[in-house]
Amino acid sequence: MTRIGRQTWDFSRGTGVYVGGVGTVAGQLESAGPLGTNFDFHLENDRVDGDTWEHSEQSMFGKAAQIALENARVASEELDVLVGADLNAQLTGFYLGLRAHPVPALGVYSACASICEGLAIASLIIHSQHGERAMVGTSSHTSTAERQFRYPTEYGAQKPPTAQRTVTGSGVAVLTNQPSAIQITHATIGKVLDYGIKSPWEMGAAMAPAAADTIAAHLADTGRKLTDYDCVATGDLGHIGHKLVKELLHEKGLTDTGHLTDCGMLIYDSSQPEVFSGGSGGACCSLVTFGHLLKEMLAGRYQRILVSATGALLSTVSTQQKDSIPGVSHAIVFERKDGM
């Protein structure tokens, strides 16, 4: 492994890290959204088999993992490590959802930025030859998140327009050292940044500075410009957070933000009910990246993209104790390898 600059890991030389296959499972609202047809499996009901919300989330995670393995043509026994995350306390979505796989497992957490943290760790494992194949994924469910962080699902509380809807779904990828059409070349690990946002209804605002900081650090470390990427996608800032990150990048002198987008903006259409400022949650970035952005790369529309997943670091206790909400953002570079 080579570290370049202060925060970026370079996987482009030596043992390569490639995306062997992906699996995506989308909830009802996500399936009905603009990217709906891109996802592999659509839930007919967000409550899977009439079971609890938590079991539904675990079942989505399991299903996405199964599809990813099938697409990568890899058997579960051939995996060297699982790296995953979700928003439930003690990562029950990941650990219980994938317990059927007899594979060494690492649960990680940086809220909704976990997918890029997972990809970075798994890439490091493969690049440093501690494993040949790894499975990485995240899940989230709007009703498990509501219960844990907010109110009961059916409770009638009016949400402000800055609120975001937690994405119901799961996105999983199998990474391997065997060359494929998409390579992971860099990972930039973000710092925890606290700009003093206190409202849990303003996650986009809480995370935008971290995204801007990580993107700027990545460009400084690699000596690249924003225009070197065909798409720069933040994780789940939503429409309001997207405007903020754009302004913050402009302040840093990064003005070519034409290719900047946000997974939370892409996953829903503004006309859908109660999506407010856009999507959020652990599965927002993984669903859009694996289900949509990588497909755009395979279709030849993107050559190189930067995905900077964003996480808001809070718990129910920290909000009730009036702590501010710091953000963190980790970025991954995906590059298309022609001739694969």
């Binding site: 800055t162 940044l193 700009y195 003093g196 946002i197 605002a205 309001i240 903020l244 302004e247």
Partner: peptide
């Protein structure tokens, strides 16, 4: 993050809220 940066950012957030 300095206090000035935080205050500036709060203004920016207010503008886009």
């Amino acid at each position: 993050v300095t206090k000035a940066q935080r205050d500036n950012y709060q203004q920016l957030v207010k503008k886009h809220r």
